[in-house]
């Protein structure tokens, strides 16, 4: 049995990719006690310039880079990109708009991964959907981070085909969750048509 937490489609496989993290640069911004900022938006901050610059990019092998680090080093990485050695990851609060303008064809990446810090963060589903439908991403779409069995079915329906199950959780149990429902109601990324277009209903 493989000692791996990675699922691709319906199988457990070895991970051939090396994950590149951003160095810890985020100073926790403490809110003033009792002070409530009314009607503020989500407000997660993008990686700092310092974090991006201090990220160590391995010289060889297949690597998954933070989106911001890739954009900063885009020119230097072109040859490795052609060798299918460069993949991207983004956090759930990052948007794709700017990136899509720079990188017209996102299918140059063999893999895009979305990092979900807390499994309750459902933005990952919208991101998956956008990558597959709006931006027509055809290659491997991986969820990693706080990825748990009970969200896999939704991730699959949102366009993900690869799941790095959180360490300590049973990956074989998790596999089963991909089959939770046989005939979902609504159209989504995996099954595009709603059930009333797929089946004859009484």
């Amino acid at each position: 049995m493989l000692d791996s937490q990675l699922i691709l489609n319906q199988s457990i496989i070895d991970d051939e990719w090396t994950f590149v993290a951003l160095p810890n640069g985020n100073e926790e911004v403490k809110k003033q006690a009792g002070k409530v900022v009314l009607f503020k938006l989500t407000g997660e901050s993008p990686p700092s310039e310092l974090q991006i610059n201090e990220t160590v990019i391995p010289q060889n092998g297949k690597i998954i880079l933070p989106l911001s680090v890739y954009l900063k080093n885009r020119e230097a990485l072109q040859s490795r990109l052609k060798n299918n050695e460069i993949a991207l990851w983004l956090a759930t609060h990052e948007t794709l708009d700017e990136f899509i303008i720079i990188e017209k064809n996102i299918n140059v990446f063999p893999l895009i991964a979305v990092f979900v810090e807390r499994f309750q963060d459902g933005r990952i589903f919208s991101l998956g959907n956008l990558l597959r439908t709006r931006y027509q991403f055809k290659n491997t779409l991986r969820a990693f981070g706080d990825v748990l069995q009970d969200q896999l079915f939704y991730l699959k329906r949102s366009g993900f085909d690869s799941y790095l199950i959180k360490t300590g959780k049973d990956v074989h149990e998790a596999l089963k969750a991909l089959q939770s429902f046989s005939d979902p109601y609504q159209g989504a990324v995996d099954i595009k048509e709603p059930v009333w277009k797929r089946k004859v209903r009484s």
Partner: peptide, 11 residues
């Protein structure tokens, strides 16, 4: 029916 287990809006 549409909202039941809507994958994108489950969390």
């Amino acid at each position: 029916q549409w909202s039941t287990f809507h994958p994108e809006f489950s969390l």
